[in-house]
């Protein structure tokens, strides 16, 4: 068992009129190797939740366990936790600061106190993992394109060799191709390394085809925790939270409403095409 959240609540502005429960009694088990989508609109508490997982925010009440140990115990090393639970923030390219790409990726492993050779090896591997070509290694990170910068920033976290990788809205602000590239990269990482991945997003369409499990947050509460198909069947509840099911789900539901015996559980375009073909061929 990798990560366990036990009755985690987080409030800010405690004691004033502005008291807000950003997280409200969250119970969660995140086993090794799962690919999880964390969905919620802005302000639903999803970013607050992931910052609890690597100890950046301490819960007001409740406990978080990593491999059976309470992460807020005196003798638990936060630094080690942060290397094991890697968190890539929203717009991560805004944290780049070194003179060249390679040094920037070295920052994480260097902070772990590794020797120079190991640091550089890890940085090199991480940059390879995100698919950045060698020619960019010694360029200033600020001269790269938006998508490249973001990949460098992700490499900066990968170089710490995390066991759990959390990406907070990794596709924000990118164009469709850039978005597909990042999502493709994430699913490739998952296939190659088998690490636990938590993908935070406000779009079901982004995560639907990749993840094993979806968590839906609303107003600091965990509303759904299930496999994608089951979550998408709650279209009305999702909409009342300001979310939407994947577009394909809507298409299939419309067809079903018009009396066609289609399976509304399909998620991807190709599955939907196959399903529609099957039903229409039988006519």
């Amino acid at each position: 068992m990798a990560l366990i959240l036990d009755h985690v609540t987080y409030e800010y502005g405690t004691g004033t009129e502005l008291k807000v429960k950003a997280l409200d009694d969250i119970n969660l088990v995140i086993p090794d190797g799962q690919f999880i989508g964390l969905i919620g609109h802005t302000g639903s508490g999803k970013s607050t939740l992931v910052q609890h997982l690597n100890g950046l925010i301490k819960p007001t009440s409740g406990n978080i366990y990593y491999n059976g140990k309470d992460i807020h115990d005196e003798d638990f090393s936060k630094k080690e936790l942060r290397s094991k639970v890697g968190l890539v923030f929203q717009y991560p390219e805004h944290q780049l600061f070194e003179i060249d790409v390679f040094s920037d990726v070295c920052f994480g492993p260097k902070n772990l106190g590794l020797d120079k050779k190991e640091v550089e090896l890890r940085a090199y591997q991480a940059l390879k993992q995100v698919g950045l070509e060698d020619e960019y290694f010694y360029q200033s990170p600020f001269d790269l394109s938006g998508g490249q910068k973001r990949r460098v920033a992700i490499a900066g976290v990968l170089a710490m060799k995390p066991e759990v990788l959390i990406l907070d809205e990794p596709t924000a602000g990118l164009d469709p191709k850039g978005r597909d590239e990042i999502l493709g990269l994430v699913s490739k990482l998952r296939k190659e390394t088998g690490m636990t991945i938590i993908l935070v997003s406000h779009s079901m369409d982004d995560v639907a085809e990749y993840v094993d499990r979806i968590l839906v947050m609303n107003k600091g509460r965990l509303m759904f925790d299930d496999e994608p198909k089951k979550v998408f069947s709650h279209v009305e509840e999702l909409e009342s939270m300001g979310l939407a099911a994947p577009q394909v789900t809507y298409i299939m539901m419309e067809l079903k409403k018009r009396g066609y015996p289609v399976d509304t559980n399909v998620i991807t375009i190709s599955e939907a095409a196959k399903e529609i073909k099957r039903v229409w061929a039988s006519k």
Binding site: P176, K177, P246, Q247, I269, I276
Partner: peptide
């Protein structure tokens, strides 16, 4: 051109490509 079409359009396109 590094762009995409709405999912509905894409689905219609896939269906058309496969003969519908």
């Amino acid at each position: 051109l590094r762009l995409e079409v709405p999912k509905v359009t894409l689905l219609a396109y896939e269906l058309k490509k496969s003969g519908l």
